[in-house]
Amino acid sequence: MSDKHTITVTVNGHVYTDDCEARMTLADFLRRQCGLTGTHLGCEHGVCGACTVFLDDVAVRSCLTFAVQADGARISTVEGLAEGDELNTLQKSFQEHHGLQCGFCTPGMLICATELLRDNPNPTETEVREGISGVLCRCTGYDGIVKSVMAAADSQRDGVSESGSIS
């Protein structure tokens, strides 16, 4: 076995320090070492986008990022999106507008849509489609996902906050 490296990352506000091999991907580190299995591995070669996470506020494929590259970084995953016990606007919107079926792509969709709405709070439908075009969904035909992101943008603009506590 190869030499181990000790890395420290802050994931969803929690500090994790652990050993890993140089070849370990960030995705595997999150899933195995941190126990955060919400980050999904659909292809492990950077196409499907299900494993997308924030690395210092930039959405990246965690299957194409080595864990050692993330040493010292701030990472957010799907588990960190909710505001306490309250789903955030995007999460509520995906529920409300049927933005998921099997849900395997959902973490990647949510992270990419979060980045999109952060950078462009008033996207057109075309911009939404481009913004999440790096994530594959096999179930929905994408219609519910577009509706979900558009509706979330509307809600954020209107400052509307529906109840959606986690139960």
């Binding site: 299995t37 909710a82 789903l87 529920q95 998921l100 959902t106």
Partner: peptide
Amino acid sequence: RPDGTRKVTGQFAYSS
């Protein structure tokens, strides 16, 4: 969906 909350929060356990 009754599984929706777990699917949008990453808590839903897939076989993998």
